[in-house]
Design a protein around this nucleic acid. Structure first.
Lengths: 209, 209
DNA sequence: TTTAAAAAGTTGCAAATGCAACAATGACTT
DNA sequence: AAGTCATTGTTGCATTTGCAACTTTTTAAA
């Protein structure tokens, strides 16, 4: 992921943060940083570790995203508007919060670093769109098998490989493709039986084609 | 949708387009403008009318998006990278194509209108992310009923109303929520029977709570 | 090393859905 | 007004999937 402050010096960064509506906040472990804000904000993890989680009406909590140092999150980026989502610290965490409107409404176009910042943000948002498109492509497939194959294809194309190292657990994969975990497990079993894939832990080898 | 050239004068716009790698192209009716480009480009319809379509392996073509004057499309925005997609003119159409990398790599930060352009583009991309998030929210629901209800809720919240005027056909809605059209039709029937909604053509009234 | 807690695999079964085929309605054209 | 084409509604049936409940395996913690 591109960085919000790339090509901006530490001094310029400090100036920039003074121009915008920002807050540097520290949170203890297991605290909610953000939940369903109407305000559009962008947050950056300065130190520590947090997670975006979702709690559905059954009370099941799933982890949507891991946030480590330099990770970016926010209402502009994720769908934090729904009250099912929250950003929660997993350890003592320092966060920089920037009001999105103060970014957009700031009008002095002479500040080089401000313009660079906007451009960095643009690059990040286009990357995010690409990720979302990939996921939508998967989610619109009608069977679990097709969802899995689409996931495998996208992964392999991107990494130029036939061996997949899942970046998360199978439980998370089931969430990602919006399928029941046990049903997905069953489907993976079929794919193995039919000789399309081979797995060892979170390593999946693609054998077809 | 925000406009790519808002707050940029006609003269500035012309200067800008000379700075960037752009092409103004005219296409006759029923011609393919773009299909699965490796290049990242942004296109703007200057005159005419086109459609983003998708043709699946069965040969079924669906319309993904209507493009009218000032509409923006492109590999950065839609998932045009898959060869299932293409942008096709429905009448004689004039298009402005801008190379995405020439936008990002241009480094002279003194041009006010260039910076404004980047900012406009940023606003557009964040809007797009929001749209994609909404769709993902729908697509991750496990039943057609839940998908429909999520669609209704999002629509109503956004428009502040209990009456929905579908912006497209039921056939398209089925595509949007990734469900079989007849199965969706059946589910809408149940929702009517149970008194949750009432429909008249493409107007849907929400009766529950 | 033991213990606890996640994660992953398995399976029967009921429910939801896709598919196919066709009827009905509505919109548009000549 | 007739005819064509797209959209919408309907229904039987086979398939897929979610769900629940339980086992096995893996990982992390004490």
């Amino acid at each position: 992921m591109k960085h919000l402050f790339s090509k901006i010096s530490v001094k310029e960064k400090e100036k920039l943060l003074r121009l915008l509506e920002t807050n540097t906040l520290s949170f203890p472990k297991n605290t909610t940083i953000l939940s369903s804000t109407k305000d559009n904000v962008i947050g950056i993890i300065l130190e520590g570790h947090a997670q975006i989680t979702r709690t559905d009406y059954n009370g099941n909590r799933t982890i949507i995203e891991e946030l480590n140092e330099e990770s970016i999150f926010g209402t502009v980026i994720s769908s934090l508007k729904s009250n099912e989502y929250e950003v929660m610290t997993k350890e003592k965490t320092k966060v920089l919060i920037i009001d999105y409107h103060s970014i957009i409404n700031y009008e002095n176009t002479n500040h080089k670093y401000y313009n660079r910042f906007i451009k960095n943000l643009l690059e990040i948002t286009t990357d995010i769109i690409e990720e979302k498109n990939e996921r939508i492509e998967i989610l619109t497939k009608k069977t679990i098998r097709d969802k899995l194959l689409e996931y495998f294809n996208t992964y392999c194309k991107k990494h130029g490989t036939r061996i997949i190292y899942l970046p998360f657990s199978y439980t998370d994969l089931a969430d990602y493709i919006a399928a029941d975990r046990s049903a997905m497990s069953r489907e993976l079993g079929y794919l193995k039986d039919e000789g399309f894939i081979k797995t060892k832990g979170r390593r999946i080898s693609i054998l077809y084609m």
